[in-house]
Amino acid sequence: MSSNVGNVSDVRRTLRSRSSRSSAGMNSGSSRSGPARPVRSTSSLFFFVLVSATIVVIGSTGPFAGVRAVLSDALSPVRSAGSTLVSPLSNLFDSVGSQQDLIDENLRLREENIDLKSRVALADDAIRQRRELLAMEKLTDITSLPSVVAEVVGGTTSNFDVTVQIDAGSSDGIRPGMPVVAGYGLVGRVTVVTRNSARVRLFTDGSMGVGVRLANSGEVGIIKGAGSGKEMRVNGIDPNTVVVPGELVTTSGLGDSRYPNGLALGRVVRATAASGQLEQEVVMMPFSDLDRVGLVRVLLWVPPDLVPSVPSTTRPPATTLPTGVSITLASGSAPAAVGSGG
């Protein structure tokens, strides 16, 4: 590579000699002596700043977005291979540090398993009744939603967002805004989709807000992301509501919520009702370390406000995406993107 052309020192010498000449022409007398002033670098700076600023302005809608999506798809195998190679090492570090934690968790899970087996029998009948009620009210039953199974092929490559990348994209029917779950627990929401991959913003991201319902009391509130693996505050809970630690927190699905109702988020860790306050302080912990989820399901369900308008007098219930209907959130080519909230 370096045999027949000059190295960078040559470039520097060349640029400097040009700088001297430019400088002499533009600013006579000022650069005849001493080191050559980098006039050339200023012009290249202006050029690249101008191009960058142009991309900032038109980037999300212009042709760059399509090129970006294609290149990102090309990086997917690299991301996946890296994850496969590095994860055993990171898992090794984790296991060394948390041996006792694993033993404790194992004991706790055994006890929980016994309790859950007894509840399953009761739950089967309740599920049947719930399905009938949901059907009567034309509400969404999350257990019957069509979905696409995808593998998490990588985490975020940035310090400023909490996302994961999955190996399914628009070719699998995935669209921005669709909720992503592991089991029936919420993981996050699809934000950007390319042909063969999609980026999922975890609900623990600082920019995400989710409408929630406390399972026992039915009280609704809102949680805001606080970062991966951190406790989250449930806002808007009435101070007179009885909230017990361990209570299940699910999505509320109210109004134009971005999620169907009934997706589990976590459990209440503590609730403190101080006198004179308009709401009590309820803190929940997400179910699992969402950064380490391996397989997820993308629910082929689009939030009501993202469903293409249908000329009808009745609004469709929280909706599964009909076959053949596509949603365009951003003009131009992929990737389409959706904002956060809700």
């Binding site: 690249f48 900032v56 980037g59 999300s60």
Partner: peptide, 21 residues
């Protein structure tokens, strides 16, 4: 630009502008 490719959620061009400076 490579940053924007590796992180699809990042606004396109912001990192380029910052890194150029």
């Amino acid at each position: 630009l490579a940053y924007a490719v590796s992180d699809l959620d990042a606004p396109l061009g912001v990192a380029a502008l910052l890194f150029v400076l």
